[in-house]
């Protein structure tokens, strides 16, 4: 590996670095848990790395809230998410996803923005954020800003809507309108840590005080080129009482989730296994 590193400390320095290198081959990195592996497998001669690890700008790092949403800086690490009480209380799906990611050492450096921009179909935090209908706040080196729903920001396998001028500053998650929630992240793999999901299911349901589901967000990982938000499965649940979902309704829900799956077979699991497990775990989310 042989490449130049630029380590901006402020937002203007960062934007200038992006601006100045538009004609060159550059990559942006923060925790480097995926990027270094990619670099090992490719020619890095002439590559410029814009390193965000020394950026001091709080907007990129803090977790805050206002009346309508939570803001999570793109450089927030998985460990920081896990340690945040509001996240744990309000969004168990995100807490669990961050907690099931890799290992303590990796969680200490891996960032939310990195997890999103790596665009892996098995991204843990990404799946949770898609289920939560998170929005990306994007800035560019010309001073423009834009917002885009995460599920549309991801355009395909390893593809996002980001241009070469842009990067994600933070992510917002709409606040729960109910305290009655059912939220979690199921990650299927053969070991408890240092695992990449063979199948994952992120779900976040909000119920009124009678138990009627008023919001359903369900996304499934590692079963398609991107992580789908399972709209038809979510629509099926909306309006049903969480305490009163029949076995046939669970089956129907699982079938609808499964309809979004188009998995591959690889050394870790066959497409058959991925579908079978996705169907199975989809049925179980009502049981706990």
């Amino acid at each position: 590996m042989n490449f130049d590193v630029i380590s901006p400390k402020t937002t203007p320095e960062l934007l200038n670095a992006i601006y100045d290198n538009q004609s060159k081959n550059f990559r942006i990195g923060a925790g480097f848990t995926d990027l270094i592996n990619q670099f090992k497998a490719q020619e890095t001669e002439g590559l410029i790395l814009i390193n965000l690890a020394q950026l001091t700008e709080v907007d990129f790092k803090k977790i805050s809230e206002n009346e309508i949403n939570f803001q999570i800086g793109a450089l927030t690490t998985a460990s920081e998410l896990i340690d945040n009480k509001s996240i744990k209380e309000n969004f168990p799906v995100l807490y669990q996803a961050a907690n099931k990611l890799a290992s303590t050492q990796i969680r200490n450096v891996a960032t939310v923005g990195g997890n999103i921009c790596n665009v892996s179909p098995s991204g843990d935090m990404t799946a949770a954020l898609i289920a939560l209908k998170a929005t990306c706040h994007i800035i560019d080196c010309d001073g423009n800003e834009r917002k885009e729903l995460l599920s549309s920001f991801i355009r395909g396998l390893k593809k996002t809507s980001l241009t070469k001028k842009e990067l994600i500053k933070n992510i917002t998650i709409p606040k729960n309108f109910s305290k009655n929630i059912k939220s979690g992240y199921e990650k299927v793999g053969s070991r408890k840590s240092m695992e990449i999901a063979i199948v994952s299911l992120a779900y976040h349901l909000q119920m009124d005080d009678k138990g009627v589901i008023t919001y359903a967000g369900v996304a499934c990982g590692a079963v398609a080129p991107t992580i789908p938000f399972t709209t038809s499965a979510c629509e099926f649940l909306t309006g049903k009482n969480i305490n009163d979902i029949s076995d046939s309704e669970k089956e129907e829900f699982a079938k609808r989730v499964l309809s979004y799956a188009n998995p591959i077979s690889d050394i870790r699991a066959s497409d058959w296994y991925r579908k079978e497990v996705l169907f199975n775990i989809s049925k179980t989310i009502f049981e706990r």
């Binding site: 290992s103 053969s190 070991r191 408890k192 840590s193 240092m194 990449i196 050394i267 870790r268």
Partner: peptide, 23 residues
Amino acid sequence: MIYEKGVLKNPSFHGYKMLTSTD
């Protein structure tokens, strides 16, 4: 170790599932 026609398909700890202390 998963071989296809004599070629190892999982030459890494990602593909070769050695258990960890948490297991």
